[in-house]
Amino acid sequence: MVLSQNTIKSQALSEESLKVVDAFNALNTDEKLALLYYVYKKMGDSITPAAPTATDPQLAPKLLGDYYELDSDRQLAIMREIVNREDTEYSRAYGTLKQNNQLMVWFAWAQAMGDTVVDMPGDYQATQPINDALGQIEKLDFEGQISVLRTVAENMGYTDIQPIPSQAETGKTPSL
């Protein structure tokens, strides 16, 4: 099975964090995008310093360069492709990034919304599931929030790289 079709749930997540990931996964595409927007608008200042030295914007030139030159409709379509894990050029570019760089992409896009990135419609009203998920995220401590966001970010984008089977799956120990 291809990794891009799997839902990844980190073993490091607490029960509360897993519930938030499940709540996020239950949202439709546009609700997921709205929730990410609200998370970064409400908590962006605390999320950014999570791993500033662990990110490298130069690893994502297509997502943090070319993307800004596109019109709003195309930008929104690309965000949807990434959330839906579609096999597209931009979704593949996102899928090759590590979690911290994936978070950096969403943060950069949220910061540029309304300027060089498509903005939320002015009359947008968050649904109750979005508000509920946002409330759950806000109740988590900083580490829980980052863990949820890393898991959510990792569950987006397309890659055809398959995970290495675990010892439990193969019954064999790794060898050099």
Rank of each mutant, 00 (worst) to 15 (best):
K32V: 03
K32T: 00
L33N: 13
L36M: 08
L36Y: 05
L36T: 04
Y37I: 06
Y37W: 12
Y37S: 08
Y38H: 12
V39Q: 08
K41N: 08
K41H: 12
M43T: 05
M43R: 09
G44H: 08
D45Y: 09
D45E: 10
I47R: 07
I47E: 08
I47L: 10
P49G: 04
A51N: 03
P52G: 03
P52I: 01
P52L: 00
P52W: 01
T53A: 08
A54Q: 15
A54P: 12
T55G: 06
D56W: 04
D56F: 02
D56R: 06
P57Y: 02
Q58H: 14
A60C: 03
A60E: 03
A60Q: 00
P61F: 11
K62A: 08
K62G: 10
K62F: 03
K62Q: 10
L63I: 02
L64F: 06
E69G: 09
E69V: 14
E69D: 14
L70W: 00
L70M: 03
D71R: 02
Q75W: 07
Q75H: 03
L76I: 15
L76S: 14
A77F: 06
A77I: 11
I78H: 02
I78A: 05
R80F: 13
R80E: 07
E81P: 04
I82K: 12
I82W: 08
N84M: 14
R85L: 00
E86W: 01
D87R: 00
D87C: 05
D87W: 01
D87Y: 02
D87L: 00
T88D: 05
T88N: 02
S91L: 04
S91R: 08
A93G: 02
A93V: 00
Y94A: 02
Y94N: 00
G95C: 03
T96G: 13
T96N: 15
L97V: 07
Q99Y: 13
N100H: 13
Q102L: 08
L103A: 01
L103C: 11
W106L: 15
F107K: 09
F107S: 13
F107A: 15
A108M: 05
A108T: 06
A110V: 04
A110K: 01
A110F: 01
A112V: 00
M113K: 10
M113P: 03
M113R: 05
G114W: 00
G114S: 02
D115F: 15
D115L: 14
D115Q: 13
V117Y: 06
V118G: 03
D119R: 01
G122H: 09
D123K: 15
D123G: 09
D123Q: 12
Y124F: 12
Q128R: 15
P129H: 11
I130M: 11
I130L: 04
N131D: 13
A133L: 07
G135A: 11
I137A: 02
I137E: 04
D141E: 13
D141Q: 12
D141I: 07
D141K: 12
F142V: 10
G144K: 04
Q145K: 02
I146G: 06
I146T: 08
S147R: 08
S147P: 10
S147C: 07
V148E: 14
V148N: 11
V148W: 03
R150I: 07
V152C: 02
V152Q: 05
E154P: 06
M156K: 01
G157Y: 00
G157N: 00
G157I: 04
G157R: 00
I161G: 07
Q162I: 09
Q162N: 11
Q162S: 10
P163I: 01
I164L: 11
S166Y: 04
Q167V: 12
Q167T: 15
Q167R: 14
T170S: 11
